[in-house]
């Protein structure tokens, strides 16, 4: 019987260690830790071109993460990309006329949305739309423009 008890205790410890490992994977390794602040508000922004932006990409303001991309759709009327952003609830004083741009982290890094605060007294609220947007830089376009202007300058 004694042996029974100690087997059970060891098995209990084994299961606890396994669950702790899963927990570590969830909280320390993955982005699940961020989901704690899921109860924020949603705003949308329309971009001419989002380049390689992905769902769950970070949304930052002055380099601080203030939200993440929730979904990306194509607007059937304007043929623009309609991006829904989940804003964290503690950032509830973002001016109404804030602008959004798509940037790339580093040369080959992932793309994210950068917000630049406006001057309005009124704040963004759930369901609002960010009107001022700037599309992603597409490398081929940039190079094309560069070569074009170069050729023009040479003449």
């Amino acid at each position: 019987m004694m042996q029974n008890k100690s087997t059970e205790i060891i098995v209990g410890m084994f299961v606890a260690v396994g669950i702790a490992a899963l927990f570590m994977l969830a909280m320390k390794v993955s982005n699940l830790g961020d989901f704690t602040d899921e109860a924020g508000y949603q705003v949308t922004a329309e971009f001419e071109n989002i380049g390689g932006l992905k769902v769950r990409a970070p949304v930052t303001m002055a380099g601080v993460r203030v939200g993440r991309v929730a979904s990306i759709n194509l607007d059937p009327m304007t043929y623009n990309a309609e991006v829904t952003i989940n804003m964290y609830s503690q950032f509830d004083n973002i001016p109404y006329d804030t602008s959004a741009s798509i940037y790339t982290a580093g040369l080959l890094g992932e793309q994210y949305i950068g917000l630049v605060a406006g001057a309005e007294e009124e704040f963004l609220q759930d369901g609002d739309v960010i009107d001022l947007t700037q599309p992603a830089l597409v490398l081929e376009q940039v190079i094309g423009q560069f070569l074009y202007s170069k050729a023009e300058g040479d003449e």
Binding site: L22, L25, A26, K28, V29, S30, N31, D34, P58, E110
Partner: peptide, 12 residues
């Protein structure tokens, strides 16, 4: 970086 790129549902 690990947390930013590892998704709980898709990966773990």
């Amino acid at each position: 970086q690990m947390q930013a790129k590892t998704d709980f549902y898709d990966d773990i």
